[in-house]
């Protein structure tokens, strides 16, 4: 049986290794970008593959810089929107970067 204390010990070792590698004190989940991007899927499709004809933008395969620019423009209010100006403000710049990375990597 995997005891939670063992699990925690393992995670601490992994976190220490990660911190050493990245210089960050906080242990990030390796799938953080995937998890954050999944919050977009309700409207933009699983992994950014929106249903064709749904009228909503497919994000899969969008170049990172292009998508990040768009998200930042929504967040700063430069680009008008029905709802994305309100949603994009809920994510940090770092989180938006991870989301853009994830969608850019989708086919």
């Amino acid at each position: 049986m995997i005891r939670s204390s063992h699990r925690r010990a393992l995670a601490l070792i992994a976190a220490a290794a990660l911190a050493g590698a990245s210089g960050s004190a906080l242990a990030k989940d390796p799938n953080l970008g995937r998890n954050l991007a999944a919050t977009c899927a309700n409207c933009h499709g699983t992994n950014g593959q929106a249903v064709p004809g749904s009228g909503l933008d497919a994000l899969a395969g969008t170049p990172r810089d292009k998508l990040l620019q768009k998200l930042n423009d929504f967040k700063t209010g430069v680009k008008p929107a029905t709802i994305m100006h309100q949603i994009s403000k809920g994510y940090t710049d770092e989180q938006l970067g991870l989301i853009a990375d994830y969608f850019a990597a989708q086919k």
């Binding site: 989940d29 949603i87 989180q95």
Partner: peptide, 28 residues
């Protein structure tokens, strides 16, 4: 959105990892 937090956590737990410490959910 709850389901995605749970799926990610279950997969981590079933492979001996801690759950994501900073989940985000949103509503429309």
């Amino acid at each position: 959105q709850h389901a995605k937090v749970a799926a990610a956590a279950i997969i981590n737990l079933q492979s001996g990892q801690e759950p994501n410490p900073e989940p985000v959910v949103m509503n429309t």
